[in-house]
Nucleic acid binder design. Structure first.
Length: 343
DNA sequence: TTTCTTACA
DNA sequence: TGTAAGAA
């Protein structure tokens, strides 16, 4: 039985901190008749983990949850990593615009407007990065996701050519042994897992906890991470290739450009990207296909298209080219396409 | 001496 | 979380 001072020095903290954790309900040491706190080995261990989690920025409230649910420390660490990545990206954005402001300021004289504009731009960028929300509630869809893939829509089957498309993506990427790939919006891992037998390390990113849980159960070898298109939990230039299927249409057309830049950030030079998704070849084609659905009175299709953000493939191609990529495209049907880009 | 509690920054 | 003050 140790008294608080001994514990504090041993763990390299202060007595105040230890009492504070008790106040927050994280630990309950035994109290003697003199009201002194006495700590056992178990208490020490617990305090040690509290301190460790605190060190990586987890709040006491989160730590409390983590400690109570015993089994899932990994899950909370995962979430914490994502949070830190988001903060990191935000800081990078801020530094970037400050650089631009300084440059403007040195160039010309009266450039307040430019600086205001840059600040405003930064603000919207921050909002986009944070403002991501799961409009379609994938957490609740997770369990039945693979089953629902097999079912066809009544008059509109978005998963027609699904397997062909996934196969084509892998065939284009040609993952090599030892390479690191990132599968964005990995869901239950249907696409990402196809890289595993080829010897690649796969990071599966998804914003839905439940999806990740299911994914991990199906494919234990996938390195599953919380995150989304606008804030990928991956370092700059870490990925040899990126895949994504049936996910980009959950991001608005405006955000898609930012999403491509985010992919560009994590991709190595010479890296490859394969995007398989519901999209239209271009604006004309979009009008043509929609008109077709209207003429046949296919409300189901029209509603589905309106509810989500099917990309304009020509825009994606254009953005990739601006970033210096070589781009190829492939159509599976009117609404299912692949964009393949090489850095 | 040591720890405790409470208040406040 | 750090600091301070009075009490046990």
């Amino acid at each position: 039985m140790m008294k608080i001072k001994e514990v504090a020095t041993k763990l390299n903290t202060t007595q105040r901190t230890i009492r504070f954790y008790e106040e927050k309900g994280l630990i309950q040491p035994d109290k003697g008749d003199n009201d002194y706190r006495y700590y056992t080995e178990q208490h020490l261990w617990k305090l040690q983990t509290i301190l460790s989690l605190r060190e990586v920025g987890m709040s006491t409230a989160q730590i409390k949850k983590t400690l109570m649910s015993e089994e899932e420390v990994g899950r909370y660490l995962n979430m914490q990593r994502s949070a830190l990545y988001e903060e990191w990206l935000e800081i990078k954005d801020m530094i970037g615009t400050i650089d631009q402001m300084i440059e403007k300021n040195e160039d010309q004289e009266l450039v307040k407007e430019d600086i205001f504009a840059l600040a405003d731009q930064l603000k919207t960028l921050k909002e986009k990065r944070k403002g991501w929300q799961d409009q379609w509630n994938f957490d609740s869809q997770a369990r039945g996701y693979d089953e629902s893939l097999k079912m066809n829509g009544y008059r509109f089957n978005v998963h027609e050519n699904y397997e062909d498309a996934l196969a084509k993506a892998i065939e284009s990427i040609r993952p090599l042994k030892g390479e690191k790939g990132v599968d964005i919006g990995t869901g239950t891992g249907n696409l990402g897992s196809k890289c595993l037998p080829l010897g690649a390390h796969v990071i599966g990113v998804d914003q839905s906890e439940e999806m990740l849980k299911v994914c991990k159960e199906k494919h234990p070898d996938i390195d599953v991470r919380n995150g989304h298109f606008l804030a990928l939990p991956v370092m700059d230039g870490e990925a040899d290739f990126i895949t994504t299927s049936y996910a980009l249409h959950h991001v608005t057309e405006q955000e898609k450009e930012l999403a491509l830049r985010e992919m560009d950030r994590i991709l190595k030079p010479k890296g490859r990207i394969a995007i398989v998704d519901l999209m239209f070849a271009n604006a004309h084609d979009r009008a043509r296909v929609i008109k077709g659905f209207e003429e046949e009175g296919n409300q189901e299709a029209l509603y589905a298209i309106e509810d989500e953000f099917y990309a304009d493939r020509s825009n994606l191609v254009e953005w990739f080219k601006q970033l210096g990529y070589t781009v190829h495209t492939h159509s599976f049907n009117d609404i299912l396409h692949m964009v393949y880009a090489e850095k």
